[in-house]
Nucleic acid binder design. Structure first.
Length: 213
DNA sequence: TATACGATCACCT
DNA sequence: GGTGATCGTATAC
């Protein structure tokens, strides 16, 4: 089942945790990539100095001030895109960065040094072969830049409503790890966020979440 | 208008 | 461990 708006309207740290184990679906033409989310980071509110929106409302950060469930995409180091989902209420700029996934289905996209979509080589015959073999290979993708490269996400998704979008959306974890079901709850590691040393009292906050195992 | 630099990655030693 | 690639954004002029 697709994640609803209300899922993302909760507190950012909660959303970041809850997203672990959920799946990202990316549809590219007839192809579909299913990716399990295994690492996230929370960027919460105007006072969080690690948050791009802490510097105020700008053209770039505008979507973070808007409705939850929309995509905030930014370019980093001139080369890599990063995918975030807006959280909380309108006017309270917050988002969750998707840092790590496991691709559990879909054709593996060969690594390429650059990001132009036309450089991705997609072979139909390979895809057919993979299907007939019923092969299931899990590919770990750690790092927000790699996540976007693998899922072919670029600025075109900036501002997209991921509650409704047909190309990219979230579905609920199939694990059903509620206490009632008797399965073990997921083990979640809390760590400091990456690359935010400048963020003063916010730099050591453990707002990075990693799914164990 | 100009400039410094970053929520990164790949490749080197 | 270190460095280069590469460009939009914020900030300073």
């Amino acid at each position: 089942m697709r994640l609803t708006r209300s899922f993302f309207q909760q507190k950012t740290l909660q959303v970041a945790k809850n997203l672990l184990g959920c799946f990202l679906i990316r549809k590219i033409g007839r192809r579909q990539i299913i990716a399990r989310i295994i690492e996230t980071e929370a960027y919460r509110g105007p006072k969080d100095l690690a948050n791009h929106a802490s510097k105020g409302r700008t053209k770039r950060t505008e979507v973070m001030f808007g409705q939850a469930g929309h995509a905030y995409i930014y370019l980093i180091y001139g080369m890599y895109y990063c995918l975030n989902v807006v959280t909380e209420r309108i006017g309270y700029p917050s988002a969750v960065l998707i840092r790590g996934i496991e691709i559990i289905n879909g054709l593996k996209i060969p690594n390429s040094k650059f990001q132009e979509p036309n450089k991705y080589h997609i072979s139909n015959s390979k895809f057919q072969k993979r299907r007939t073999n019923n092969e299931l290979r899990i590919t770990k993708v750690i790092g927000p830049g790699k996540v976007c490269r693998e899922l072919q996400i670029d600025k075109g998704f900036h501002g997209a409503d991921l509650i409704k979008d047909k190309r990219l959306y979230f579905i609920r974890s199939a694990d059903g790890f509620s206490r009632r079901s008797g399965t073990n709850p997921p083990k979640i590691k809390r760590l400091p966020r990456v690359g935010v040393d400048y963020a003063k009292e916010y730099k050591d906050k453990k707002w990075r979440f990693v799914l164990e195992g």
